[in-house]
Amino acid sequence: MREMRKYREIMHVYIKSQLAWRADVVFNMLFTVAKILFAWLLWGMVFRERNTVADFTFHGMLSYYIVSSFLSQLEMSGGISGEISARIRNGTFSNYMVMPVSIEGYFAAMEVGVVLFYLCFDLLAAMVWIFVFRIQFLFARSAVVLGCALLMTVLGLFFMVQLNYFLGILTLKYEEISTFLMIKDNLVSLVTGTIVPLALFPEGVVGVMRLLPFYYVTYLPSMLFTGRCAEEAVRGLVVLGLWCVLMQWAIVVTWRKYRVKYDGVGV
């Protein structure tokens, strides 16, 4: 319990850090509003001539769009790898090493602080606009599916924190990790269908992608929240859970092996 209070306070500090800049708060809310407005206009035009697109109704599509863009906006762990890498290279990573906390726990708490901040303000902005545009939000009706979606979102965000932490500490070995980060970003885009729609891939390739964790980070939870793909929920949780265990193992091994290479130069 006492241990948890450390991380809760770290989380508070990062929420407070976000609140220090008022312009950031305002612009972030405006950005959320602009995205919903844009989606409403765009899909409004598309649905003027038809009732459904790929089995989605107008309100179903908007619901999916709002949830998936909301979840993508919450996934901000990319900064972790960059920060760890920069701090290892300039010697200020020592700041974390001298504190009696788990460094991974520190970064996870930091991420929760940042995400909670955006969650509150973005949720507020999204709800106001859903009300203004009278979007009939479509949610899954089954409490089990909703629970799975929620758990999958948390696990997915945690996995991304783990992955970015892992890539960050690889700096201890490789000194330069931008290639790893590029591979990760492209893989995430590919698996979540951002580069090429998943429907264009052969079934076998999509099957392989479903074994990767990225499919379950924002795409599947968004589908589950809006009442689709319920049959994939349990399998998704198992796959993602296994990836989290595997990643934690990789972090522990990498840290033990390469920690001694840290030379803290630059200061």
């Binding site: 450390k6 500090v13 009696p100």
Partner: peptide
């Protein structure tokens, strides 16, 4: 132990010292 390096800060620049002290209170139990 504690370490203070003149060229390196433990404080959060955008927050107050009180905020950092509160965090250290919890970190050091």
């Amino acid at each position: 132990y504690a370490i203070v390096m003149g060229q390196k800060s433990q404080l959060f620049f955008e927050l107050t010292t009180n905020d950092t002290l509160r965090m250290f209170q919890e970190i050091y139990g």
